[in-house]
Design a protein around this nucleic acid. Structure first.
Length: 772
DNA sequence: GCTGTTACAGTTTTT
DNA sequence: CTGTAACAGC
C-alpha cells in the first residue's frame, strides 16, 4: 500500500513539502501524528534522506514512543539510526556522547524536580541562608526560569539585594551540581545548547547530519528549546537542515512552565517559512462539538487563525447542566454516564475533566459509592515511589558516589545508626573540603566515622560484587544487600512496596532488551567494548564523534542508561486498576487524548477560568485555550456542568457560571433544566425538591442548606438570597455571596467575577435577578 | 529515631 | 477540607 494513500489534500501537501523549513498548523484531531510520521517515512522512502539524517523531537516519552511504533509499522527499516525522542532524552544522549566536551563525568546523573528541591534546601541550610527571605521553592523557580531562558548566573541581571543574592545562590547551586556530577532537567538542555554553541566543528557535524528536524507540539517550546533547534538546524549557517514544525497555537496551555507560543511566529519569520499549511479537517468530533470549539476560540485575539471542519455531521447537541452543588453535579454525571453505558458506550470511553485536581475528590466519592470503576490520571509514577527511589539511590551511589542527594536518601535508610548529628558533621567536613559527602567520609573520626565508613564499604562492595553482572542481576543484588527487602518485609504495609521493588528487576530486564544492551556489548563492559564492537569513533578536529549509528550502549554503561531512564521516564502512574474504567483527569492531562463522551465539570468563574488567570497577562486567553482543548477531546457526546455552590478549601463558595458559556453557539447547546428548581420570593421560600435533596444528601450539605434558609428567613422582605445570580448596570453579572445588616440596612456581598467583589446596599443598589 | 501534634497553604505538568 | 512540613516529646 502506498504511504500517501488516504491522506487529504492538506495532509498530502504537508507530507510532500520540499526540503525547506515549514510550519504545519495542525488543529485538534486533524491527523497531526500521522502527518509527522508519514513525512519521515516519505522522506526515507523517496531516498531524500537516510534514517540517520532524521531527528524528531517531542515533549513526552509517550509521544516519542507513539511516533516510533507508527513509523516502524509504516517502514520495514531499522529506526535505530534516527534520533527520535524528547528534548531531554536527546540532550542526554548528546551529552553522554560528548561528556568531555561538555565538562561532565561520563556517568553524570539526572536530578528530578524532587531531588533538585531537596538539593537547594540543603544548600540554603549549609550557607545559612534565611529561608524566610529565600524560600527554596522560589530559588528553584528562579534557577529553572533562568536556565529555560538560556541564562547562567553570570548572565542574570539583578536590580536589588534580593535578586543579587538569588543570582549568587544560583551560581553556588550550579557549582554544587558540578561537584556532585549531577544535572537538573533544565541543565540537560542548557548544557547541550552551550556545547553546540561553543563547539563549532561539533555543531557543524550535527547540522550536516540532521537534514530534517521534525518538531511535535511546537507551540509548547520554551525559548531555550527554540534556540537549541535553531543551532541544530544551522539557522543561517551553510550546513543547515530543515525544520518541520507542527503545532497548534490554539492548544498552547503551558505558558506557566515557560512555553512561548510566540516561537511559532518567530519561527515563521526567522526561518523565512514559505510553506505554511493548515490542517483544518477534523476526524474526531461531530459538528456541534466542533462548532462549539470554533465559536469559543474565536474570542481569542492574536491567533494564527484556523477553523476546524468535519464531515461527520452535526451529531448531538452539547448538553449543559446547572447543579445546585458539587455533590449534585457528581450525581448528575453518574446518572448521565450510566445512561451512556446503557447505550453501549464503554466506561473507558467516558472522560470526566476538571480544571484542578482538588475537584476529583467529590466525583471519585460518588463513583465509588455507585460502584463504577474509574481511574484517576496523574498519580504517583513508578520511579517516584519512595521505595523505588531508595533502591535507585543505591544504584546511583554505585555509579556516581558523589551524588549527595542519593547519599542522603539512603545513608540511614534502612536505619543503621547514622543520626542527624553525624550527618551534620559530615556535611560540615564536606563543605570545608569542597567535596561530596561520600568523599568526606574518610575525614570523619570517632563513632560517626566508623558507621559512615561502614556505609561506604557497603556501597563499594556492592559495586565490586555486581561489576560483572548484567543489569537485572545487579538490581537483584542491590535489593538484597541494601536490606531494603528485609526492611519492608518487617513493615505491616510493606507487601506492596516489596512488590514494587521486585518489579524493578523486570523493569531492568525489559530495559536491557528494549535498548539493545547486552546485544551489542556485554552488560559489564560498556563504552569501550561497544566502541570496539562496531561503533566507530571518528576524529574531527580533535573532537570525539561517534558513528551515526552508535547505539546507546556505546555512550553509556547499562547502569547509567537505566538511571537516566528512571529520571527521564518516571514510568506509568499506578497499574491500570480495571481495564474498563471511567477516566478522570485534569484538562491539561487530557491534551492529546480523545473519548466518545466527555464531561467538562466545574465551569464556574474563579475555577474555570481560574481566578489566578485574571492576574496574568493573557491569562484568560490561556484558560480559553484550555477550554478549547477540553471541548475538542470529545468525539460524540459533550457535557458541561457548573454548580451554584461548591466546597473548596473547607469553605462553601458561590460562583457565577463561567463566562465561557456566553461564548458558545446557542444553537449547538441544549440546556438541561435543573431537575430541581429553587424559588425564593421575598424571603418566603417555597420548599422545593432542590433543598429537599440537599437536606437528605449528607450532613455538610445539610448544614449549608440550613444556613441559607436561616439567612434568607432573617432577611425577610429583602427578596434576595445567597447564591442568587444578579445583574448590575456597572458591574455586570454577579452572584450573591453573603447578605448582612438585616432588614434595617441590608447589604449584599456580590462576586462580580471579573469586576471583583462588591458590597452593595440592597435598599439603594439597582439589581436585577438573572434567570440562569 | 520515631510518632503525634500543630501550623499552613492551597492551578495547571513534563522532563 | 486535606496533605505536607516542621517541631516537640517519648
Amino acid at each position: 500500500m502506498n504511504l500517501l494513500d488516504n491522506l487529504n489534500p492538506e495532509q498530502l501537501a504537508a507530507v510532500t513539502l520540499p526540503s525547506q523549513s515549514a510550519l504545519i498548523l495542525a488543529g485538534a484531531g486533524s491527523g497531526k501524528t500521522r502527518v509527522l510520521t508519514t513525512r519521515i517515512a516519505w522522506l526515507i522512502q523517496t531516498s531524500q534522506v537516510s534514517p540517520a539524517g532524521i531527528m524528531a523531537v517531542t515533549f513526552t516519552n509517550k509521544a516519542a514512543k507513539e511516533m516510533l511504533s507508527r513509523l516502524s509499522a509504516m517502514l520495514p527499516i531499522n529506526t535505530r539510526g534516527m534520533w527520535i525522542g524528547t528534548f531531554h532524552g536527546l540532550c542526554n544522549r548528546l551529552l553522554r556522547t560528548h561528556h568531555r566536551d561538555a565538562a561532565l563525568p561520563q556517568s553524570f546523573q539526572i536530578l528530578d524536580s524532587q531531588d533538585q528541591l531537596s538539593m537547594i534546601k540543603r544548600m540554603l541550610k549549609a550557607l545559612n541562608v534565611d529561608d524566610e527571605k529565600y524560600p527554596a521553592k522560589d530559588l528553584m523557580y528562579f534557577i529553572n526560569n533562568a536556565k529555560d531562558n538560556g541564562r547562567r548566573a553570570a548572565d542574570c541581571e539583578a536590580y536589588d539585594h534580593v535578586q543579587k543574592r538569588m543570582v549568587e545562590l544560583y551560581d553556588a547551586y550550579d557549582q554544587q551540581c558540578q561537584r556532585e556530577g549531577v544535572v537538573d532537567f533544565a541543565e540537560l538542555l542548557l548544557r547541550a545548547y552551550e556545547l553546540l554553541q561553543r563547539n563549532h566543528p561539533l555543531r557543524q557535524h550535527y547540522q550536516m547530519r540532521f537534514r530534517h528536524i521534525l518538531v511535535d507540539e511546537f507551540q509548547d517550546t520554551n525559548d531555550l528549546q527554540y534556540n537549541l533547534l535553531k543551532l541544530l538546524a544551522g539557522h543561517h549557517e551553510p550546513a543547515g537542515g530543515a525544520i518541520f514544525a507542527v503545532g497548534d497555537d490554539d492548544q498552547s496551555i503551558y505558558a506557566f512552565r515557560g512555553a512561548n507560543v510566540g516561537n511559532m511566529q518567530a519561527f515563521e519569520r526567522e526561518f523565512e517559512v514559505k510553506n505554511l499549511i493548515k490542517l483544518e479537517q477534523n476526524y474526531r468530533s461531530h459538528g456541534h462539538i466542533l462548532d462549539t470549539a470554533n465559536f469559543l476560540i474565536a474570542n481569542n485575539k492574536q491567533r494564527l487563525g484556523k477553523n476546524l471542519r468535519t464531515d461527520a455531521g452535526q451529531g448531538e447537541p452539547v448538553r449543559i447542566y446547572e447543579a445546585s452543588s458539587d455533590l449534585e453535579e457528581a450525581q448528575w454525571i453518574i446518572d448521565e454516564a450510566k445512561s451512556l453505558m446503557g447505550e453501549g458506550v464503554p466506561r473507558s470511553e467516558i472522560a470526566i475533566l476538571y480544571r484542578s485536581n482538588a475537584q476529583s475528590r467529590v466525583i471519585e466519592h460518588a463513583l465509588f459509592a455507585a460502584g463504577i470503576p474509574y481511574t484517576v490520571y496523574g498519580g504517583l509514577r513508578y520511579f517516584q515511589r519512595a521505595e523505588v527511589k531508595h533502591a535507585i539511590a543505591y544504584l546511583q551511589l554505585m555509579d556516581n558516589p558523589h551524588n549527595d542527594s542519593a547519599f542522603l536518601r539512603v545513608v540511614n535508610f534502612p536505619t543503621r545508626g547514622i543520626g542527624a548529628r553525624s550527618i551534620e558533621q559530615l556535611q560540615m567536613a564536606a563543605d570545608s573540603y569542597g567535596v561530596s559527602l561520600y568523599a568526606a567520609v574518610p575525614h570523619m573520626t570517632g563513632k560517626a566515622g566508623t558507621v559512615l565508613s561502614n556505609f561506604v564499604k557497603l556501597i563499594e562492595s556492592a559495586r565490586f560484587e555486581t561489576q560483572q553482572l548484567p543489569l537485572p542481576e545487579m538490581v537483584k543484588v542491590v535489593l538484597e544487600r541494601s536490606t531494603l527487602l528485609d526492611h519492608y518485609g518487617k513493615e505491616k504495609e510493606g507487601a506492596e512496596r516489596i512488590e514494587n521493588l521486585e518489579q524493578m528487576v523486570s523493569a531492568a530486564t525489559h530495559f536491557v532488551q528494549e535498548e539493545g544492551f547486552g546485544v551489542t556489548a556485554p552488560a559489564h563492559l560498556g563504552p569501550q567494548a561497544a566502541a570496539s564492537s562496531g561503533a566507530a569513533i571518528v576524529n574531527l578536529d580533535g573532537i570525539e564523534l561517534l558513528d551515526a549509528d552508535a547505539p546507546l550502549a556505546a555512550v553509556m554503561s547499562p547502569l547509567s542508561a537505566f538511571l537516566s531512564h528512571a529520571s527521564l521516564e518516571a514510568g506509568d502512574a499506578q497499574a491500570q486498576a480495571g481495564q474498563d474504567a471511567m477516566q478522570l483527569m485534569t484538562v491539561h492531562s487530557a491534551k492529546g487524548l480523545e473519548f466518545d463522551a466527555v464531561f467538562i465539570t466545574g465551569l464556574e468563574e474563579g475555577l474555570f477560568p481560574h481566578e489566578s488567570s485574571s492576574r496574568e497577562l493573557d491569562g484568560v486567553d490561556e484558560e480559553r485555550r484550555l477550554m478549547y482543548v477540553a471541548i475538542t477531546r470529545a468525539r460524540k457526546r459533550l457535557y458541561m456542568s457548573f454548580t451554584q455552590q461548591r466546597m473548596l478549601h473547607g469553605q462553601t463558595r458561590f460562583n457565577m457560571k463561567s463566562r465561557f458559556f456566553d461564548e458558545l453557539p446557542e444553537e449547538s447547546l441544549k440546556w438541561l433544566s435543573p431537575r430541581v428548581q429553587t424559588k425564593w420570593f421575598g424571603g418566603r421560600n417555597s420548599t422545593t425538591a432542590w433543598d429537599d435533596a440537599n437536606f437528605r444528601e449528607n450532613g455538610s450539605d445539610n448544614q449549608i442548606a440550613r444556613q441559607i434558609t436561616q439567612k434568607s428567613s432573617s432577611d425577610k422582605g429583602i427578596g434576595w438570597r445567597i447564591g442568587e445570580q444578579v445583574a448590575h448596570a456597572r458591574f455586570g453579572e454577579g452572584v450573591i455571596v453573603n447578605i448582612e445588616g438585616g432588614a434595617g440596612s441590608p447589604r449584599a456581598l456580590i462576586n462580580f467575577g471579573g469586576a471583583g467583589m462588591k458590597m452593595l446596599d440592597l435598599s439603594v443598589a439597582k439589581l436585577e435577578k438573572v434567570a440562569r
